[in-house]
Nucleic acid binder design. Structure first.
Lengths: 364, 364
DNA sequence: GATCACTCTGTAAACGTTTACAGTTTGCCG
DNA sequence: CGGCAAACTGTAAACGTTTACAGAGTGATC
């Protein structure tokens, strides 16, 4: 007999039901058959516990119903929340999700895009650490649709979703100004990255907008990490004890800064207001809880997934480039008004609770 | 011409190189050919940018080189560190990783196992929320190798890796006892889970082992979360102000408890020692940093991946069931010796720094 | 009862690869 | 230069599915 050891196939079912493999396929895909045929095929399939081979299906159908998400670091909470949202969009649609950690090496990023040519994945969501010319070249030839999370030159014919670090930073600085702070320090992450550069831009712009002169002595850059934040804050506070607030490039740094303040006997927010970035769980871990800029990681993931699916299932449409507006989660670390000189508009003291309310920010 | 619009295939290459598709395949897989043939095929492939179709390969080869990792929640740091380790093991071996979030619904877990029959994945690492009879049944029929991260009945013929919550908890309690604490409270997570139950077991056992009588009034259970921890700790400290230390079922609860202590003007570790569990970044977020039990999430992920790969590539071997021993990361939240009556051995005061040193625990 | 339209079914090809087998070439040796 | 072994090459089948096409069956209608 042809139906030997292995798992059942259409052929096994066909034999058992006494029909052809075409009928088996049709019944199983609901393409219409005589009731009698339907019954026999379904019974045979049920008895043998038949499950169609997905690989064969993919080969015939020309698509795998698999999507790939490639990002620098699985551990980073920002990417974790992207994964969660991507799942939320794609799982109900029956897509499987392949996870690829590039470990922040550019060549690995290029390889992921190139490997789309092996037809293993129907589409890709890519978070490049930095976009080089090589990226653009490879993206232009990509064998499958790609959505990039990050900034791309306008010329690139690739869908993308970007955060807005400039306005996100400005949002934080403006908030501190409204709370009456004037000597606003800035602990930045590595400055040689696009977001790092943009944060510096937003910081200076927002200060000037508020009529304040950016003071180079109030900015330090450091690698990311809680302890790095503590060290940087100590350095700042040592050199410039007059600082009344600090904005940090992520929540790790902010929490570290809060620790430093505590070590020095400074009270938050009375003596030092602290604002972080990412609105991760670490912001809630502060005591008091930290105000934090949410650059919309979750939203970016959701959007990217939707755009990719639209590319796959919808017809043709022009290249999309979306910018997710930053939001500010206001918490106790910036509560209270020290000086009211700044904001002549309606008082903002009612926003001083720790409830984590959120204010929309502007997008470019 | 047969080579039309689509991407190049072996046939396209064969035509261009003037050889048969068999030769193309052989050259590309290094199975030996005349130098002249090799040269022509390689040139043709390079010129056309040929990439073999992975789906067709999988169909012919009977394996996809894809593995699936299924867990309840992508956001949970414990699973995140598992993902990272699994990647670390499988990526160098050329496996792709499919991520499946079951959202903690049992039926979804069963479906993942069942869907192994579609041949889309070569193997599965499953983290079930709880193992039911239905799980065992489905696992017994699994079409591909499965490694379960979690506890399985001995009878199950499935590879598994388990944590040891009992000894992990005991490790924490013993540490507190050594530090001179006597009224050791316990904030547990949901008690109707296997780990929740095991923690309760370990807690009582370790107390008795130290000659202390477990006091039901010193244990509370709550859902997980920082704020839940704060509330639970307030309740405990209100009712029993004599408490001198608290062990919490995860770092969120521990951090919340630390906040509560701070609110009440208690100093850590002097007035209240705090120990958490999972050794996540939150433990470092405490001020002072929190001592925490590491149940070995990373190690479990690594082991599970290795076991799965061994099952796939190695020959047959008996079912393995590994238990990962817990470790204690000692930090400042348990520093200092208040009473020396407990540990008559060498003083342990040198472990009182915040350096996060790690002590091995016992495994069953 | 013959014709027709219609539905259902089976055969075979296709997706793109690898590989068993048989056939061809090559080089070597006597 | 003939014979032989070894190395290489091509044809065809196989993996398991879906589907175009043609053929067979069904029922309705005249």
């Amino acid at each position: 007999m042809t139906t030997s050891g292995g798992p059942p196939t259409v052929e096994t079912i066909a034999e058992r039901a006494g029909v052809s493999i075409a009928s088996v396929s049709r019944v199983l895909n609901g393409h219409g058959a005589r009731p009698n045929t339907v019954r026999r095929v379904e019974q045979a399939a049920a008895e043998l516990g038949y499950v169609p081979n997905g690989v064969a299906r993919s080969l015939k159908g020309g698509r795998t119903r698999q999507l790939t998400f490639a990002m620098p670091d699985v551990g980073n909470p920002a990417y974790v929340s992207m994964v969660r949202q991507i799942q939320a969009v794609t799982k109900p649609l029956g897509y499987r999700l392949l996870l690829h950690s590039t470990d922040a090496v550019a060549e690995d990023e290029l390889d992921v895009v190139r490997s789309l040519a092996d037809r293993t994945s129907d589409g890709l969501i890519l978070c490049p650490i930095r976009v080089t010319d090589a990226h653009l070249e490879v993206l232009a030839r990509a064998a499958r649709p790609v959505v990039v999370i990050g900034s791309l030159p306008d010329a690139a014919a690739v869908d993308s979703v970007r955060a807005d670090s400039v306005h996100g930073t400005a949002l934080a600085v403006r908030h501190l100004v409204e709370r009456g702070r004037r000597r606003i320090a800035f602990i930045n992450g590595p400055a040689d990255t696009v977001p790092g550069h943009n944060r510096a831009l937003g910081y200076r712009a927002a200060l000037r907008e508020a009529g304040l002169t950016p003071d180079p002595g109030l900015t330090v850059t450091t690698e990311f990490g809680i302890e790095a934040g503590t060290r940087a804050a100590h350095r700042l506070l040592q050199a410039r004890p007059d600082i009344d607030s600090v904005f940090c490039a992520n929540d790790q740094l902010a929490l570290g800064a809060a620790h430093a303040a505590h070590d020095r006997g400074l009270r938050i927010p009375d003596d030092l207001a602290v604002v972080g970035m990412d609105d991760s769980e670490l912001a809630m871990a502060g005591q008091p809880a930290l105000t934090s800029v949410d650059l919309g990681s979750a939203e970016r993931g959701r959007l990217a997934a939707q755009m990719l699916v639209a590319r796959l299932e919808g017809g043709d449409h022009p290249v999309r480039c979306e910018t997710v507006p930053p939001r500010l989660a206001v918490r106790a670390s910036t509560a209270g008004v020290r000086g009211a000189a700044a904001a002549p508009g309606p008082a903002t003291a009612d926003a001083a609770d720790a409830g984590g309310r959120v204010a929309a920010g502007s997008a470019s």
